[in-house]
Computed example of a mutant assay.
Amino acid sequence: MLTDDGKHLYVSWDEYHRLIEKLALKVHASGWEFDQILCLARGGMRPGDVLSRIFDKPLGIMSTSSYRDDGGTLQGRLDMAKYITMPKGELAGRVLLVDDLADSGVTLRAVVDRLRAMPAISELRSAVLWVKGVSTYTPEYFVETLPTSPWIHQPFEEYDTMRPDVVLKRHQES
């Protein structure tokens, strides 16, 4: 649900899963065959996991982080993991790169540039749920464009500030 001021987008679990399924359908409709999925942790882990299951392809994980300041709302330095975690072998062939959104586009562009420099990758395409209007990078596959570039409140973000004592209290009350 987008707020009236266009600055915040609140996403329920049902909507979130529906968007992932729509993304899967867009990739499928393109007819592109790929060998592996690489998701960017943490935002791309849930979409990557679901797409890996739907397409029955191995899932690799690459950790990146760019939201560091002001409670995670101001973009700081981009950190990219040196190594990519794969179930077996190396990242190679035709790879679908998955994240949750193209925000500024900085992270996706940097990762795409790094991956395209890897000789073992023959083709790379990217997929996200949302592309913000301010993004300087547009993935090959996306579900929604957000022209006002709202802050997206994803359903799992409640865990960002929830600590074990809060979880314990929640379960003692139920």
Score class of each variant (00 low, 15 high):
Val98His: 04
Met118His: 01
Val131Ile: 13
Met80Trp: 00
Val50Thr: 08
Ala120Asn: 03
Val95Gly: 07
His171Trp: 14
Ile54Pro: 00
Val143Lys: 04
Val11Ser: 02
Val167Ala: 11
Trp151His: 08
Met45Tyr: 14
Pro47Arg: 07
His28Tyr: 14
Ile54His: 05
Ser126Phe: 01
Glu140Lys: 04
Lys22Phe: 06
Leu38Thr: 07
Leu115Arg: 02
Val11Ile: 15
Pro155Asn: 06
Pro150Asn: 07
Thr107Ser: 13
Arg77Lys: 13
Val95His: 04
Ser126Glu: 01
Tyr10Gln: 06
His153Phe: 06
Pro155Ile: 08
Pro58Ala: 12
Leu9Met: 12
Ala110Thr: 09
Leu9Ile: 06
Gly44His: 02
Arg116Ala: 03
Lys22Gly: 03
Tyr159Gln: 07
Val11Met: 08
Ile37Phe: 05
Ile121Arg: 04
Lys82Arg: 15
Pro119Val: 09
Tyr159Arg: 09
Tyr83Val: 10
Val112Ser: 02
Tyr141Val: 06
Leu9Cys: 11
Ser63Gln: 12
His8Phe: 02
Tyr83Cys: 07
Glu90Met: 01
Asp165Gly: 00
Arg53Ser: 09
Leu129Lys: 01
Glu33His: 12
Ile37Arg: 06
Met45Glu: 13
Arg68Gln: 14
Pro155His: 03
Asp35Ser: 10
Arg18Phe: 02
Thr145Asp: 11
Pro47Val: 13
Ala110Asn: 12
Asp160Thr: 03
Leu129His: 01
Asp103His: 05
Gly71Lys: 06
Gly44Thr: 08
Leu108Thr: 03
Ala102Asn: 04
Val106Ile: 12
Arg42Thr: 13
Lys57Val: 10
Gly44Ala: 09
Val50Trp: 08
Thr138Asn: 06
Tyr159Ile: 00
Asp70Gly: 00
Asp99Trp: 02
Arg109Cys: 03
Ala29Trp: 00
Pro47Lys: 10
Glu123His: 12
Tyr83Gln: 14
Arg109Gly: 02
Asp165Arg: 13
Val128Asp: 07
Arg68Val: 10
Pro58Leu: 12
Lys7Phe: 02
Leu19Ala: 10
Asp99Lys: 01
Asp70Ala: 15
Ser12Met: 08
Arg163Ser: 05
Tyr10Asn: 10
Leu115Thr: 01
Arg114Met: 13
Gly105Gln: 09
Ile152Ser: 04
Met1Lys: 11
Leu74Tyr: 03
Ala110Lys: 04
Ala102Ile: 00
Thr64Leu: 04
Pro139Asp: 09
His153Leu: 02
Asp165Glu: 15
Thr138Cys: 11
Thr3His: 14
Val98Asn: 05
Val95Glu: 10
Leu97His: 05
Val27Asp: 07
